[in-house]
Design a protein around this nucleic acid. Sequence first.
RNA 1: GGACACGUGCCAGAGCGGCCGAAUGGGCUUCACUGCUAAUGAAGUGUCGGGGUUAUACUCGACCGGGGGUUCAAAUCCCCCCGUGUCCGCCA
Length: 428
Amino acid sequence: MIDVKLLSENPDTFRASQRARGADESLIDAILAADSARRESIASFEALRAQQNAFSKRVGAAKGEEKQALLAEVKELSQNVKAAQAASDEAAAAYSALQRSIPNLIMDGVPSGGEDDFTVVKHVGTPRDFAAEGFEPRDHLELGELLGAIDMERGAKVSGSRFYFLKGVGARLEIALMNMALDLALQKDFIPMITPTLVRPETMQGTGFDVEHDDEIYKLERDDLYLVGTSEVALAGYHANEILDLSAGPTRYAGWSSCYRREAGSAGKDTRGIIRVHQFNKLEMFVYCSPEESEAEHAKLLALEEEMLAKVELPYRVIDTAAGDLGMSAARKFDCEAWVPTQDAYRELTSTSNCTTFQARRLNIRERETGADGKPGKTRSVATLNGTLATTRWIVAILEHHQNADGTVNVPVALRPYLGGLEVLPLL
RNA sequence: GGACACGUGCCAGAGCGGCCGAAUGGGCUUCACUGCUAAUGAAGUGUCGGGGUUAUACUCGACCGGGGGUUCAAAUCCCCCCGUGUCCGCCA
């Protein structure tokens, strides 16, 4: 959630942010009003409570008739306190609901608008010219079947549409990819984690997902648990309600988990192959750091993603996502999109978000400031960031981009050690 | 799935319905003492929110796993939930 103190000091900045996102600007004035209503009701409740506390002390000390008299007097006061408390609770709830409904303040430079209004930061590498090479590229599913790597039909038989089996070199390729990503993360001092994939509603909500309305999320009704769409959720919840010591620098995790998405709104889109599926694996980076460090960390996460893309030798572009496409928690988001030959399009392989203090506020994750005297000072919210290091979807781009005319696929050099030295994925 | 027990501050651990934001011990910080370390002595040591201040100070309220309830008054009594432990059952 957003920092209302900051908002009350710079309401216009927040209005502009809302506008850029295509979100409701009137929420800004609504929350300012709710805040002052809340303060007022708290003040009157606490004044009454203080009176009651003073009375209670006297009741405890008194005896006999005096006590009876005091009791009679304080009884009415007690009713007033209850009413004032109820009013104050209500005002606080209204305020909190508003606070939770306002998305993160976007950063300077984030383009305004929706999904298509991103700006391209750069292009790296060149898409292969298959026409010049003299053959028509096969799509990843056709290749996957030729290699015995992907089995969609049986996926559907066992689990339904958008489920699949990775088999043989397909399974090995995914494990290789994940391991290569993990090694890169380890090299950069990320702490490896294998995370829960079922989480409680609080964890889901804390991370910025709306469990009530988001129909991307799988819910286990019977157990009141949710399947995560990314290990970001578990990694954000990991330090909930804690005060971290970040004095030695950011804490960085690399979470490996399966991810689950309902893809409810995407009927008919990407129905072929494993581009858009209900379940996939992902190696996710997650960072806790001080707010001042967040932009530099964001750049580092992006650089690591690019390092991975370089390792698998894919041409890609980096985009700065537009405000309306950021999601609730992010203040800025960069996606790396790889060239997918048979789609003649760039498709998202990684996504890294700077959530500044937004998630941390919801999850109550703080750090201890160092005072001017060098002693421990006050607490404040930390910043959180996340970014993709590898996912199942990478297989799509790797197969298609590195394919040969006969349907075999060259293994990127950096990936070979993870496939036992295999240089070419052979036909089945 | 069933039964019982437990959940208190950085840790351990006491706590009678009012005198409990909470004993005691340890840790940590500061000071004193000591040639250094150790030992010893003294003081301090939570979070959130309201008011107040340029900022402190100060002041008020809340917090003893979470949420409700009883009561003038709840760490203390009652209910629900969550977690932990032990035993039984069941399953991999």
